[in-house]
Design a protein around this nucleic acid. Sequence first.
DNA 1: GTGAAAGCGCTAACAA
DNA 2: TTGTTAGCGCTTTCAC
Lengths: 341, 341
Amino acid sequence: MEKKRVTITDVAREAQVSETTVSLAFKEGSRISEPTRKRILETASRMSYFPDSAARRLRFGSGKSIGLIVTDITNPWHATVVRSADQIVRSSGYQLIIAESNWDAATEVDVTRNMIESRVLGLIMCFSETTEESYLLIRRSGIPHVAIDTVPPFYKGPSVLSDHLYAGSEAARHLLFCGCSRPAFFTSDPGTRRFSTFTLLEKGFLSGLRKGGIDPQSVPIIEAGLSISQGQDAYARLRASGIEVDCIFCVNDLCAIGALEEAKSRGVSIGEELRVIGIDNLEFSALETVSLTSFADPRQEIMKAAANYLIESIEDEEPLDIHRKFRSRLIERKSTSRAAH
Amino acid sequence: MEKKRVTITDVAREAQVSETTVSLAFKEGSRISEPTRKRILETASRMSYFPDSAARRLRFGSGKSIGLIVTDITNPWHATVVRSADQIVRSSGYQLIIAESNWDAATEVDVTRNMIESRVLGLIMCFSETTEESYLLIRRSGIPHVAIDTVPPFYKGPSVLSDHLYAGSEAARHLLFCGCSRPAFFTSDPGTRRFSTFTLLEKGFLSGLRKGGIDPQSVPIIEAGLSISQGQDAYARLRASGIEVDCIFCVNDLCAIGALEEAKSRGVSIGEELRVIGIDNLEFSALETVSLTSFADPRQEIMKAAANYLIESIEDEEPLDIHRKFRSRLIERKSTSRAAH
DNA sequence: GTGAAAGCGCTAACAA
DNA sequence: TTGTTAGCGCTTTCAC
């Protein structure tokens, strides 16, 4: 038996009605008699008819979908972002189309183009900052968009971010307050450390330290990375270099946990000889055996602001703009216990 | 200035050629003179023309996309699966469409229907087991599909899984080998514990214990859950109940880590008084301060097998079938150190 | 090497 | 309440 796609025409013929009537039968509350509708729906079901969304969209002009491009779906931050975006977008009657660039420029351009060609109504972007091309495409497409998480230097459009500058200076303030005097900064790996997220954290941290009377020049900046093992390595390297520090600010929790782990294994007493702050406030960071001080950013808030802005600019067709920054909250734990008096 | 979608007709008019020629200009190696092609491409670019993929697909009959539905994108297992699926599918020239059911029956049906209506060529499913309807839809649609991770009782189609029965019995074997004699099983919460993943683990574990001479009836089955805090709670409840155990097999690492954490905070010596095994082999489980024995499943392998099977059945149009099970590997760590002789 | 015409599956006017 | 007609944007014969 040969398998053929069944179309609205087939259903119409089978049910002895016009295509229009079939189409109408699938629309809630349309002018059609209940018996007819029921009969058509039954026929359609029996024939395994599924309306073709491409045909519908072509006819209608545009669909009801919103795109979201993230850099790294395996990163808990992004996973959470996907989750809340999906909920918000879905509850507003849209469909979310998810794609991942995997930090790769070519992939980012590719998925961006796919989104545009499938005529998403709006686009939520986490730029990887490795290429400007995708942004160029988005601008030329005229699709409403909003950047979250990161704002590349070339980007001028609407954005919703966490305030990295603030987090950096807060980290400095807190560490100094705890009595530290020889800080280090663990940033991302050489390939990504110039991304705005990390440079802003660095800038904020160093300026916070300066305010506290510490010469930024004296602060070792280690190109660690974003994973546990890289954090371990980086701490090992720092120790091998002979530089002595009494606190570390890491650009994410994983790296911080790695540093903590390595320090512990060397018998360093955490919260006394060494204080550590991370960013992300992972569930693990709260464990008693980890107890890492960290910054919690309001992800749901960020996503809500971004998604709602997007939906508004889609529905109002207003050229609104948005540039919001959300402050993260410092969650104090044992890795930065305060000096006893 | 009013914003209008620019179509192939606009480009054709502007470049003084027919629509056909424009269409051809976008196809590599088509019979068209280089100067013409160049001119058209330039015009198109200047006018910000993006071909409409819905129109193309409608004309062409079908697109080049494959769907993947996962239950929980924030779960590292699923995130990794998404990542590798994307890579494989993309490298075979297809586009991956990702959706999340969030363990919700209505959402699952909804996204499944969307996939079918957008005419994906194939579908990779993580069923939530809360509804049979989505499977019914898939079958009726006639779309090639493959289930991964989990196989609901009603499902009879192709599948690629990890062998939970095996993992369960291996866990039992290992714990007995370490010298344990009073095991407990921490399963999922009441709402999900009947899902096949968990019942298979339970079945395998209990039968493994029976083989080792332990009466399965005597084994406390605790409805813990899948998160750290639920693992903590569950251990606390177990202790409060007065039941004494010397080892726990948990259905995932998060739960196991919670149990470990709670036990440690009560001064229980891990690896001696209490041994714990989890499942998933999270990066955290390898930390010295956690050191949780766990099962590592070959996710990439699973995904590769599933995706390749799907691509084959799409391209060959053969009604192949596949029922593969991959065995997980036990990663021994300190949480199950062997008894000294 | 280029164009004209037909039609993919669907829905929204407009008629009946 | 139902049907007829036209056309969304694109590609693909087939003719020139």
